[in-house]
């Protein structure tokens, strides 16, 4: 095969139909500019009601107003803090329990059905309970965040532990490695990429639930600010806050993906992501 020659080259092409393609970043920029233009022009041209979708420029100025208030920054901080604490708890619990459950075959077999039963229970079902227990305190939201992201992490860790090479495990056992050493030398390196995938998925879910909790329960954070803006009819502010939340989401995704890739880079096994 001449794969080496053809690999990087365009594999297809129909002569005249093909013109020099624009670089991806430029295309992406054009796409974003197009979105901004539509949001700016559609309400101005009367295509949508400007009371429902204000022009982009108004959203920007509302954002600038927001950014001048201490309240906004306080809310931003609350959101990030809740997200980080919730995700950390979920990570620690998910990894610890995952290795424990996955490492002992009998326990895993016994818990499989339970996990499959509990996992699809929607986290929002806990909202009324959380409100009763903690009121509008940040702990209400934290409960949701931990619950939702915990499953993401746990399931990935279980996949990871299952992926451990049985030969390697037998070897470790035959050398009478102590359980902790076994975890450190055999299980952890194999499971690490899965843990990172769990981190990425958990990070996204944690943010969703953090905002949801704030929005519905009214615990402090950007979600609550959105609810306040909505009830007071400050539509442009509401959109501005939604954009901020979206941008946080983008940053979280980018960081999580970069972390995952870093962790994977040295890892010998190139694997396909187990989609959950």
């Amino acid at each position: 095969m001449t794969a080496a020659v053809t690999a990087g080259a365009p594999r297809r092409g129909q002569g005249g139909r093909r013109h020099r393609a624009l670089p991806a970043w430029l295309l992406g920029l054009i796409g974003l500019a197009g979105l901004v233009a539509v949001v700016e022009l559609a309400p101005r041209a009367g295509l949508v009601d400007a009371r429902y979708l204000p022009p982009f420029s108004q959203m920007v100025s509302a954002l600038a107003e927001q950014a001048a208030t201490a309240e906004f920054w306080q809310a931003l901080l609350e959101t990030l803090r809740g997200w980080a604490i919730g995700l950390s708890i979920a990570m620690v619990a998910g990894v610890a329990l995952g290795i424990l459950i996955g490492g002992i075959p009998l326990v895993r077999a016994a818990l499989n059905s339970t996990i499959e039963f509990l996992r699809p229970i929607p986290s929002v079902a806990l909202i009324p309970l959380a409100v009763l227990l903690f009121g509008t305190d940040m702990r209400s939201t934290l409960l949701l965040v931990v619950y939702a992201s915990f499953w993401q992490v746990l399931v990935q860790v279980l996949y990871g532990v299952r992926d451990v090479d049985p030969v390697a495990r037998e070897t470790a056992r035959s050398y009478r490695f102590r359980p902790l050493t076994q975890v450190r030398t055999v299980i952890w390196p194999t499971a690490l990429p899965y843990v990172m995938t769990g981190f990425r998925l958990g990070a996204a879910v944690a943010l969703i639930l953090e905002i949801t909790g704030e929005l519905i329960i009214g615990s402090p954070g950007l979600g609550k600010q959105i609810a306040v803006a909505q009830t007071s009819g400050a539509v442009a502010s509401m959109y501005a806050l939604v954009i901020v939340v979206g941008l946080i989401g983008v940053v979280v995704n980018v960081i999580a993906r970069a972390t995952e890739r870093r962790a994977l880079r040295w890892h010998p096994s190139i694997r396909r992501e187990v989609s959950s």
Partner: peptide, 27 residues
């Protein structure tokens, strides 16, 4: 081309936690 054009836009929309769409769509 379409992919290149829309990738960042989609990335943004995906990152918006969907519950915040409730107040928007209520409008």
């Amino acid at each position: 081309t379409l992919r290149g054009l829309l990738e960042p836009v989609l990335e943004f929309f995906r990152a918006i936690p969907s519950p915040v769409l409730v107040p928007i769509l209520m409008l």
